[in-house]
Nucleic acid binder design. Structure first.
Lengths: 169, 169
DNA sequence: CGTATTTCAGAGCCACTGAAATTC
DNA sequence: CGAATTTCAGTGACTCTGAAATAC
């Protein structure tokens, strides 16, 4: 396997090296690479299913507001690990779509109080359904038990790294 | 849960809500989000440790060549899920650094036969050591057993999605 | 005055597309 | 001719930085 044989050429005397498609062990061994591959796969799937860009961030922001109630933009960013700047962009989209409302905070007028609208809550539920379908595709080969194991392990890692790791913190 | 009501919680006249920093359950529950967060964290760590951009792709390409021997650029891309175009860019870097050699294939002159140089092999080992340190940081809260469980699960997922999923396939 | 929040304009990195040139 | 390989130029998405404007 150390030569650069053309495997499939017109002159192929070889039976069929079958074009090894497997990654090298040095990569397959690295959790960071595996995580990246799967994150990429998820992102591609979401991009195919929900054509519109930024859907993930939209969902994240809506979920935060639905669970924690009206928040300032730094709070939102802090909970999601989203940059202050990107929170503003997401809220521009959601605001245009009528999914959130931004009002200056009466007690500290530097802040905006961001609120989910009913339309936003509906959009959140719809998005969650579509995202759940993606999860199913990503976790396809795993049993329910294994899916829970994996999710639990990932949650522990995320929790551990969540403390003080946000961007522009 | 379908209304956009403000939920009244954090907006009371509380003196100090202590700024909840946790993500919402709707997100914490999604493997795709967890994967993304951790991939992001890994990428940040690698970026801090190995300042130069593209290190991950460089490592991946070097590892492929070291394990499978001289290959064409499509072969490299196929094994790594890397776009043909990006393989060319990575090889430009590695070539400039003297870590690989590109020669036209004698048997099919459309192809390049890419080979690792001794300097490239040394760089590969050095990179692997640095990347291993990052893995340790990422997996910090897990026991050795749990790390193996996680890696095994991730490998199965990556293997499952590897078949025919590459870019521009 | 210094600090905090939002907002914008832009940079950097990564993945990808489309098309040309070459060779089969 | 059609198909495959490499290469280049450029796009789009995502993350982040720096600085302005406003308010504490």
């Amino acid at each position: 396997m150390s030569n650069g044989l053309p495997y499939g050429g017109p002159m192929d005397a070889e039976p069929r090296p079958a074009l090894s498609t497997a990654p090298p062990q040095r990569l397959r061994r690295l959790p960071s690479w595996l995580l990246n591959q799967l994150a990429l796969r998820s992102t591609r799937l979401i991009g195919e299913t929900l054509a519109r860009p930024g859907v993930r961030a939209d969902f994240a922001v809506l979920a935060t507001l639905a669970e924690f109630g009206p928040s300032s933009q730094v709070e939102i960013g802090g909970r999601l690990g989203l940059d202050r700047s990107d929170v503003a962009a997401v809220l521009d989209r959601l605001d245009d779509a009528g999914h959130v409302a931004r009002e200056p905070d009466a007690r500290d007028r530097r802040r905006n109080v961001v609120t989910v609208t009913p339309a936003g809550a509906a959009a959140l539920d719809a998005l969650e359904r579509e995202l759940d379908a993606v999860q199913d595709t990503v976790l396809d080969p795993l049993t329910p038990d294994e899916r829970e194991q994996l999710t639990a392990l990932l949650q522990r890692l995320v929790d551990h790294h969540a403390a003080g790791r946000g961007p522009s913190a």
